[in-house]
Nucleic acid binder design. Sequence first.
DNA 1: ATAAAGTGTTTATATTATAAACAGTATAGC
DNA 2: GCTATACTGTTTATAATATAAACACTTTAT
Lengths: 268, 268
Amino acid sequence: MSHDDITAEEITNIFPAGASLAWGLAKPPQRGPKREMSIDQIVNKAVEIADKDGLAAVSMNRIASALGFTAMSLYRYIPSKDDLLILMQEAVCDISLPAEKPPQEWRESMRDYVLGTIDIFRKHPWYGDIPIFGIPITPNNLLIVEWALQPLRDMPLNDFEKMSIVLLLSSYARTYGMLQRDIDRAVQAGSSEQEFGGLNYSAALRHLIKPDQFPHLYPIVMSGAYIGENEDENTVGDDMNFGLERILDGIEQFLNQKRTSDALHHHE
Amino acid sequence: MSHDDITAEEITNIFPAGASLAWGLAKPPQRGPKREMSIDQIVNKAVEIADKDGLAAVSMNRIASALGFTAMSLYRYIPSKDDLLILMQEAVCDISLPAEKPPQEWRESMRDYVLGTIDIFRKHPWYGDIPIFGIPITPNNLLIVEWALQPLRDMPLNDFEKMSIVLLLSSYARTYGMLQRDIDRAVQAGSSEQEFGGLNYSAALRHLIKPDQFPHLYPIVMSGAYIGENEDENTVGDDMNFGLERILDGIEQFLNQKRTSDALHHHE
DNA sequence: ATAAAGTGTTTATATTATAAACAGTATAGC
DNA sequence: GCTATACTGTTTATAATATAAACACTTTAT
């Protein structure tokens, strides 16, 4: 149905330009003056700005100025800002995968994966602000998928099941990555104790949440657990671990079921 | 430590204006000409525009024009566009919770919750494009948290565990909501068969993914499972269910463990 | 040698959100 | 009723934004 013979140029038409650039599909220019910048330079500067002042601070002007050029010059390298965002995302996903652990340590491997991806959110707080454009198609993003697949390699799962589990874990990581980032942000915003949004919100919510309208939420808000007040350090690690262990338990149980039924089949 | 005596005005200072408005904390004006619009009118129009043309089409100008006013007039009702976004989010979360099912049907209740929230993404494809500003603090958003808590009501979980599970489920719902939305979008974009981004990407990825660099991803891309080609209908329902059942299994197992250990304690 | 392709810049444009000033209107308190 | 006050929607203005188009210059394929 679908052929494999596809040229780099055709891919360029299918993929967003940012993705094509990430794959290095753009052929280098043959004529004309020497380039004074490079895509990497631009993307790195954009990441630097975002790291320091947030994604909203990343404008074509700001990047170009920081590099000593005009805004329009950037368009000779990257066709649009959306493409730049793709490349920024890709840039911070440039991590080297850890060595494979033995298959029986799959839970540990998955924890590594989740913590590793959460780390991207901590290191680059703007990371989660870039909207998701669909499934990963850029090399480093796919490498992260590869990472997630690694612990599943010997499991009795079909491809769809594997992808479902990857999606499950990655979405969980994303959520906690952003949560952790929010807390980091609030802490950094000088709110050593009282001022963390959560703490501030606490009194307000206690006043607004009525037990008749929110019978199940009410006690949780009152106890402070909703806001997460009682967490001694500014880490969502414990909450994160709890949910993760539930996911891993669920996966493990599925594996046990499947292995049992496979064993039965063997007997027939 | 924290008092409960807090005035509506103080809450207004703590919350973003959009959240205060959502709670109806703004006191109606006492003097001046009669208002010719209302917040609801504005928000509804904004939602209407977003439903039709996407979130990017929602500009102050467009909304006001559609209502027969000038852009600046909106600022008499809503102080900023960010606040408008909060109100839009809130508006589409205005659902009535289903009747409580008996506690032993908690899995079914949780499925209802997940499917129900995913439905918001399908009905309002722009919903996931609004960045998350932190934990829910607006009434309808909190009602959705209440929904998620409902099935947990009789479980031997502490407040933090409950919130972890809610976060787990809601993040899962968000991920699949956005995935479903992407597919809906692609289908609507005329791509009856061949043109769905995924299908297009398929040939490209098959060409780019090399088994040495992506040993575990490679076979999955080749089989078409990565793109999700083989799904007969345009629903991610099956994938969604698979992951959801793993989560529910994980929760169930935790409950069993906890009940067992509680029973032991009772014996001592 | 020359045409083509590519460089960075300048200039210009369309859209944004939103601030400030304005003229008109309803009302609270006298 | 008078008046100060609070509020209305509008007009005008501003600062940013991404990016298109035209320009002069530079390198290279032919």
